[in-house]
């Protein structure tokens, strides 16, 4: 049953999140109760605690002050929240959402994700899926964060699909003087443009 696909309905197309989403989707500054925020794993969630800081830049290299970044990852043991979550990771949310500030910056607090099976059961290196939304993005952009200090990157089946000269755009780098802090910038266009995926 490969190409015998029954007539499928056309899906609802994506439209830009526009510049005015914050009071609904990231309403902290408006006194609202956010669905989720930069805290992907609460304090006490098992695993190695890390922070990820970065910024979103446009094709001129200017910060994008009205973007929203959503993160989705496995817990330290490679399990996803809500899917096969065990009581041990009740403090693990798995989902994070940040609006960018005036300087384009965003920030997540979480635990280092564990390994998740990839195609044909080959293990994937620890990674965090990101969706980027912004005015001017008619459809959100999907990318991944990998970690510079993970030897497993060399055999990762997804990184293996990326031009070796561009893989650096997917690697978060440890900050020299701050344990647990990684830097990961998102460049939408131009020099050092981030690799974006489709699945």
């Amino acid at each position: 049953m490969t190409d015998a696909r029954p007539e499928a309905e056309v899906i609802t197309p994506s439209q830009t999140v526009g510049p005015f989403f914050a009071y609904c989707l990231t309403p902290q500054d408006y006194g609202g109760d956010p669905l989720c925020d930069g805290m992907i794993a609460d304090e006490g969630a098992p695993g190695t605690r890390i922070r990820i800081e970065g910024a979103v830049y446009d094709g001129n290299g200017d910060p994008v002050p009205d973007a929203m970044v959503e993160a989705w990852q496995a817990d330290a043991e490679g399990r996803f929240a809500g899917r096969d979550a065990a009581p041990s990771n009740a403090r693990f949310r798995g989902i994070g959402r940040c609006e960018s500030r005036q300087d384009g910056s965003f920030r997540f607090e979480t635990v280092k994700p564990g390994s998740v099976p990839g195609p044909d059961g080959t293990p994937q290196a620890p990674h965090i899926n990101l969706n980027v939304f912004a005015k001017g993005l008619l459809r959100h952009l999907f990318t991944r964060i990998y970690f510079a200090d993970e030897p497993a990157n060399a055999a990762d089946p997804i990184l293996g699909l990326v031009d070796p000269d561009l893989r650096y755009t997917l690697i978060a780098r440890p900050a020299p003087d701050a344990p647990g802090l990684y830097r990961f910038d998102i460049r939408l266009q131009g020099k050092d443009e981030t690799v974006f995926f489709e699945a």
Binding site: D58, G59, N60, D62, V64, W72, Q73, A74, F80, V116, P117, G118, P119, Q124, H127, N129, A134, K135, G136, L137, L141, F142, P157, I158, L161, V162, L188, Q189, G190, E193, T194, V195, F196, F197, E198, A199
Partner: peptide
């Protein structure tokens, strides 16, 4: 200034 200039990289659908 916000659209990526390179085509998207098609990847398999993994558990993530």
């Amino acid at each position: 200034l916000r659209a990526p200039s390179r085509p998207l990289v098609i990847i398999p659908q993994t558990l993530t």
